[in-house]
Design a binder for these strands. Structure first.
Lengths: 245, 245
DNA sequence: CGAACAGATTAGTATGAACAAATTTGTTAC
DNA sequence: GTAACAAATTTGTTCATACTAATCTGTTCG
């Protein structure tokens, strides 16, 4: 532990964060106490506290004086598009679903805007996200073919904990990003989109477009979400929470 | 300093934050050193660091090792609706403007949705935000009359640093809020809104609706922003930045 | 004058210690 | 059994201190 580079608090943070994402500590359980963690990591309590504070402010953990640190979620609301649809629906006691529409491969014949960002050889994954069976969002995810070699429909379960495309891409293909840009704009439902979302043509919709980059400035993926429902933020305190509405 | 309630780091944070918002430290200048602040506040360097770290993570300050703390902005991007339109436009080297359309007083005859939130006696401030003279957003701000007694058109300058309605309300009427909820939805331009924004009727628009509350759960204000341009977020690292596009 | 170096300044990381405050757990008394 | 109290546990706050790393400043030398 003490021979790796970088500050200790960062190494402890990275380790704990990885454990959380690997399910080593599951949601609702309690973490070891500060003293215990300090002992196992061979750092001072102040240092382990610093790491825990980071995880708390990011929303992974909640700290309760006199009790301990509780695992709150594995998908904290770090952004809008990167927020797990699955988690937020589950928290409301409803049933999230994801119906795969199609996986299409493009080779130079993709729309120009996407082509410019991600390159020639592309995959488009179209999915319909549902709540209690009702269609809520149409999600188009674009990826360079090279990054997701051998992707098939089997990679996308219709129900369960692993519907999140981000978790699929991260777990199955090791896809990671460091920076992302999201825009929200307005549009009206086309014939095709209206059919999928079961709304009349010309209905005003929200479009969330999210582009994610890795450290080398390469574009990792591009995602477009069409939704009829508003986007809600709860602001206040240090943390922010997107809610499904 | 040492006889007030609450933790010291919080008191130091509050003091510094107030100074920043009052212009005691202006943008681009350097704060006193950690040691100096620790001495003047009569706390340890660790405590003053904790307060400074909070201001850094909120975006007010940037810390540079070996140099000091620089004041980055007085309106950090703490949320979308609460973000200063003025600041973001100025940062792009363009000229923000705010044309006051009207200030209307309602007494029981306000739209029901607003009436339920804020009470019977209301003020509606309608403003048109512009960039280089071009209309960009229509902003409707609703407030309880009691909170802004004696408000007039003079309170809203058309140009300059103090166009931000939030700074006006905070500075002139002492309006503060602790929690807010924002939703983003889609709509199409009505006849009136289309005229203000100079777009055809039925153009799809974004609507940002923001409701702010104080500690006693009272609703402080409600704001609706109609815009033709998309909302952009830059995500990554610990901080988030809304950009004008 | 200007480049290079040395020293001072300032933020970054880390420890150990002490006490406060909230919660949980254990024990006692009724 | 359970209500009340006591003790232990656990996080929250604060301090003094030491060292590291980046930046800035002043001086010296060519």
């Amino acid at each position: 532990m003490n021979d790796k580079p970088g500050p200790k608090y960062k190494r402890v943070y990275d380790t704990l964060r990885k454990r959380l994402q690997d399910g080593y500590y599951s949601v609702g359980t309690r973490l070891p106490t500060e003293d215990a963690l300090a002992t196992t990591f061979e750092v001072s309590r102040v240092t382990v506290r610093r790491s825990l504070d980071m995880l708390v402010s990011e929303g992974y953990l909640v700290a309760r004086q006199g009790s301990g640190y509780l695992v709150d979620t594995l998908s904290p609301p770090s952004s809008t598009c990167l927020t797990s649809f699955t988690d937020s629906v589950l928290k409301e006691g409803r049933e999230p679903g994801a119906r795969l529409i199609d996986i299409t491969f493009f080779d130079g014949d993709a729309p120009e805007a996407v082509h410019d960002m991600l390159g020639k050889s592309l995959v488009r994954i179209r999915r319909l996200r549902t709540v209690d069976g009702e269609p809520k969002m149409l999600v188009n995810t674009w990826l360079p073919t090279a990054r997701v070699a051998g992707i098939t429909a089997e990679d996308f379960p219709e129900t369960g904990q692993d519907q999140s495309i981000l978790r699929v891409l991260s777990g199955r293909f090791g896809l990671e990003w460091s920076r992302a840009c999201e825009t929200i704009r307005s549009c009206v439902a086309s014939d095709e989109i209206g059919t999928f979302l079961q709304v009349p043509v010309q209905t005003p919709l929200l479009v969330q477009a999210c582009t994610a980059f890795d450290d080398e400035q390469g574009t990792v993926f591009f995602e477009e979400v069409f939704r009829n429902t508003p986007i809600t933020f709860n602001l206040g305190g240090s943390r922010r929470q997107e809610q499904l509405s």
